[in-house]
Simulated scan of single mutants.
Amino acid sequence: MRGKFLQSWTLAYDLVVVCLYFFTLAYMIKYFDVQSFDIKVHNFLLQDYLKEGAFPAPPGYYAILYVVDLIFRYKYPFVFSALLVLTFFFWLKFSITFRWLSKQLHISTFQVGLLSASLLFISPIFIPAIDGSFWYLGKFTPTIWHNSTLIAVFPFCLLLFFETLRWQIGGFNKALYSIFFLGLVIILIKPSFMFCYIPALPLYSWSQSLRFDRRFWTSCGFSMSFLAMLFLEKAWIYDLDPMIKIMYTPEERSTVVLDPLVVHLHFSKEPIFDLLCSFPSTLVFMLFWGRVGLKDKPFVFSFLLLVFSLMVYLLLAETGFRKFHGNFYWQIPIAMFLHYLCMVVVVVNQFVKEKKVGIRPFLVFSLVYLIQVAMGIAYWHRIFDGHALN
């Protein structure tokens, strides 16, 4: 009986999450204009490339969309298929989160579901009197509703994180095959997460034993292999793309340069305020559980990923027409989501362990965390009320 009860809760959460994402995406696809909505931009981009007999680079998401559209096209090219594909990947992100939290936390399935659902909305804190209409631009957030390639790659990044932990902590060498496969899939869909994963992996491996052992050198081998793939993909995107010569003059074409803060300060008018509002739960966590967190292996790995993801965004930029597209931003939402995920596990487990002793820190963290969730729900409501994603 208990197993059936737990299974019914799991199915209920799955159904709610699928409906949430399906109808939200359907609304945005129908009512948002193409200039402000990446899903429509990517659909039209795919159509333009197909006319030239090619796929946009990297091709992973577009290839999936193309195949699904062959089966489920309804009226317009890639519209209904995008709705199905992105709803599936959103649900997969939730499902992976739910199952990992179920293994890590000794709480009820109902509570795990609520916690997993809250992570779908976690957001920076917005103060309209200061932020104005910019609730998203200039801040750092783990919740993205509009970028199709990020939505598609998100669950694979979560799996790569967990498989890496399985190998690093548990010593399961079979996970090595999964790590390589998932890294390749990520690079073929949207390589952004690898920008922080590649430098973080060897450093994390070394931190576990403080020795240059076999695991460290294997990590270096993975990082170098993935880095080589990124350089090949860079050449594909910047030099071999057949549409570059058609759509842009030589002066408009992009390259990668070291240009600290230029993109961030373009979007952030109050950088210190935006930084504090983006990481309030982290500040509370480090105040009360910093020492515990730094001994927790998943949290340490997620924190390294977050640090490197921020460094990449703040230091690197593109020139030409891509300059303010923010293409070095997209690893941050994934790293932040993993950071919150690991943070929540530490806090809940410490509370269950300490019980009444840890009630005040837990209440403070819960209050700040719930404010961030409420802000995320307000941002979601704004999609319908204000047709705004900025």
Score class of each variant (00 low, 15 high):
L101V: 04
L101D: 06
S102W: 10
Q111K: 12
P124L: 00
K75W: 06
G138M: 00
L120V: 07
L46H: 05
A54K: 12
K93G: 15
P77Q: 03
L137C: 07
V67D: 10
S116T: 11
F89G: 11
I125T: 02
Y62G: 02
I130G: 00
Y66P: 01
L45M: 14
F140M: 07
N43L: 12
T87C: 03
A63N: 10
V85M: 11
F72R: 06
F94S: 06
F44W: 15
K93E: 13
A54V: 13
P59H: 03
K75L: 08
F134P: 01
P77W: 03
S36D: 14
A57Y: 08
I107G: 08
D131Y: 04
F80Q: 01
T97H: 06
Y61P: 06
L84F: 11
V41K: 15
F44C: 11
I144Y: 04
L120S: 11
L137D: 15
A129S: 13
F134N: 08
L105R: 08
I125G: 07
I96H: 02
S108N: 05
Y74E: 14
I96Q: 07
P128Y: 01
F37L: 04
L120C: 05
I125A: 00
W91S: 09
F140D: 05
K75Q: 14
R73Y: 08
D38L: 00
K139S: 01
L92Q: 11
F140Y: 11
F140Q: 02
S118W: 08
I107R: 00
I122Y: 09
A82I: 10
I125H: 01
S108R: 02
A82T: 14
K103G: 15
S36Q: 15
S95D: 09
K51C: 03
H106K: 15
Y61V: 02
I127H: 01
F89Q: 11
L101W: 13
I107E: 04
K75N: 13
Y76G: 09
V68H: 01
K103F: 14
T109P: 05
W91N: 03
L45H: 11
Q35N: 09
F44L: 15
S133K: 10
Y66V: 02
L84C: 05
F94A: 10
L137G: 10
Y66L: 03
E52I: 14
T109G: 06
F89N: 06
I107Q: 03
L50R: 15
L137K: 13
W135I: 05
R99H: 13
I64F: 15
A82K: 10
L114E: 05
A129G: 02
K93H: 15
P128V: 00
V112R: 04
L86F: 11
P142M: 06
Y74S: 11
R99L: 08
V112F: 01
T141Q: 05
Y61I: 05
P77F: 02
F121I: 11
H42S: 13
T141M: 09
Q111A: 15
L50D: 08
F78S: 03
F44H: 12
H42P: 09
L120G: 10
A54E: 14
F55A: 08
P58R: 06
S116L: 04
L65Y: 06
S123M: 12
V67A: 15
Q104E: 15
W91V: 01
R99A: 07
S118V: 09
W100G: 11
G60P: 08
Y74M: 12
V68F: 13
A54N: 11
S36K: 15
A129M: 12
